[in-house]
Design a protein around this nucleic acid. Structure first.
Lengths: 218, 218, 218, 218
DNA sequence: AATGAATGAGATTTCATTCAT
DNA sequence: AATGAATGAAATCTCATTCAT
């Protein structure tokens, strides 16, 4: 007995085709410049058909981000859980995130570029949903840092601040790679990012410090 | 003999008023949702009048970013030039950038959020202009890093990569501050960022390394 | 030998089910706001199936009005034919019409409200068909009046004019009853309508007149 | 010092032009079949311009009905107030209403045909507003009847019921005239309507009655 | 130089109808 | 014969831009 009927499976296939087309168009033009007409053409469905799958343009956009983000977060969690120790987890996280976006360049553009833009779109509601995904991600990273603190793998710093730092570091590099015309492997940049970040947060072995301590600074 | 006639000066004043209004509206709504009508009302000019100063909506937006970015870069250059040594310059850069955006929150939203979005807007032309500003900034940062390398203040790494890293680090933190509802001083976060970044890029004093070396990785 | 085969009978049953559903939906939303999708759901058939019974939405609408109107007219004719004398026939007509619509509120909304709207819908064709039903009804009423004139039961007046008057009188009261939220029996209003109309058209017994005579007025 | 500036006057002129065009189109096609495009063409403005005067199609439609209804009611009130005695007022009312619609045929179609249709349009709100105008009218007529009752000009009947009766009577005749292709003067039909209605409601001079009394019937 | 009313291209969305299964 | 997914025409509304005053 199949979990899904043939109809349901076909429905999901078509839905996915639309989403892929939408991902292409949205990533190329941004939400506002993208038109349903273009997504229709790209997905080889009629315009009206799109509305049998998504109730509006914003719903399509938003579903796209939400579902793909889940995929990303699931992937990261799964990869990271395979290793132990905060340092190893951080390394793994960086590599996994790069690996994911190396395969999902279009989605990266949508994910990062529109992240903050959402607050104006269709009220707090949609913005809120996407932002929540982002916050979930930050919290996930912060948790890793916190564990590292507990086991004295990292020096004393604000986990959330470090999570933002790492995320910014990563996104900036990914963004550069995504935008750049000539592309080597994104993953090749993992080691240097890992090195920068881990040196940045690990316990000082020389005792030297470059500013006021975290405790004083907040 | 005045450099600018009274007329010219008045023209500049009115132009600046429009830009300030535009900054408010664009930062609150984003480029597409912002309307010329609203900018007109905000600036207390008629809609048609805006077109005596800027030839289109996109031109206004773009002029805004370009000119304000110049201001930012000038400010950063001036501040950084006051100190010597790459490490000091980096500290100074971080503090200066935070100081600038603490005073120009609205502009930050425009600067960062729309940075990459530009490639779709009105063709390569405009996107190119804004991107160029961003590239100029990256080059400026990369130059500081490179100087640090030359004087062995930093370990062996790709200056441009490090420049992207620093910029991402900074923007991520600023973004968090800008978005967050309850705001302390942004500058208070400078020390920890400085520490993370400088530890990350300075010469190892323990010889320990966290990944393959930079040389191997590119 | 049956007049209709089983197949034909089943066809008629399904057709009637659709019409009943359509009556509900059309009366609730009006022609334009009603959708084939809703009628389909209401009738528990698929959308496509409706088109096996009616060739278009407008055809369904129109068939509904036409057939139900026939039903109404048949009912009125049958009732009225049971009595003799124009005065009695008028009383009977009023009561019968009220009785019919008391049982067919939904249809009344369609019948009266859209009556005149028809001329724009899908050209003269459809409008014509419905209007013809209405004209038939008016003629039927006018014929009763005319008989009353012949037998000197009514004063000298234009039969058609009187027929319009009576119809307007009736519809206005029925409309009020249909629209009103709290409903007693519609038939309870028959006596006063009968009295108003019959006084209005019967031969004056006092010779008093309230305007120029009919003969002068047209 | 003029009450209205030139600009305001010109604005009103253009607004009125749009309304007249809208009246033509709405009366010819009904609300749904009428398009903003056609109203634009008819009024010789661009489509977008209509939206400088009315915020939506429904708002235009509704403004049209509301303002023209006010005009009608004002006219009726003014005319009726010129005479004294309920009987005279009724005569005057019938003549005035006919006179008004003889000059405003297009509006009649809108006023009567869409009266009840409104409940489905855009929720209770708009339907409510138009219905209220109609109720106001009914109340106005009912008040005249009530005064007639007080002075014993009419026999004992329910004023509101009589008001509905008169309104139905009138509208039916006007509707016939409006729809009919060859038109004499509508006002020529006033005398016979007056006679029917007044005979119908005035005190019986022969004592004969045609049904149960009003008192029993409600 | 400033105005703001007019413009119309262009986007989203609905829904009657068709047709392959 | 019944289905309901796909279609695409058509309608409303927005807003950058123009231009007569």
């Amino acid at each position: 007995m199949p979990k899904f009927t043939r109809k349901e499976r076909e429905y999901q296939v078509r839905r996915a085709e639309i989403m892929t087309a939408a991902e292409r168009v949205f990533s190329a033009k941004g939400f506002h410049k993208a038109t349903m007409g273009e997504i229709a053409k790209e997905s080889e469905f009629a315009e009206g058909t799109l509305y049998n799958f998504f109730k509006s343009k914003i719903d399509l956009y938003h579903s796209l981000i939400e579902e793909k983000s889940e995929e990303l977060l699931d992937y990261l969690r799964k990869q990271v859980s395979k290793t132990g120790g905060a340092v190893e987890k951080v390394k793994c996280l960086i590599r996994a995130q790069m690996a994911f976006f190396e395969k999902n360049r279009n989605f990266f553009k949508i994910f990062v570029r529109e992240r903050d833009s959402f607050e104006w779109m269709a009220g707090k509601d949609v913005g809120g949903r996407v932002n929540k995904v982002y916050q979930t991600h930050i919290d996930f990273v912060a948790r890793i840092i916190k564990d590292g603190l507990k086991h004295s793998e990292f020096r004393n710093l604000n986990p959330k601040e470090a999570a933002y730092a790492l995320t910014g570091l990563l996104n900036s590099s990914i963004s550069r790679w995504v935008t750049s015309p000539r592309r080597g492997r994104l993953l090749a940049q993992a080691p240097s990012l890992i090195e920068i970040f881990l040196r940045g947060v690990q316990k000082s072995r020389g005792g030297k410090s470059y500013g006021r301590r975290f405790e004083e600074s907040v």
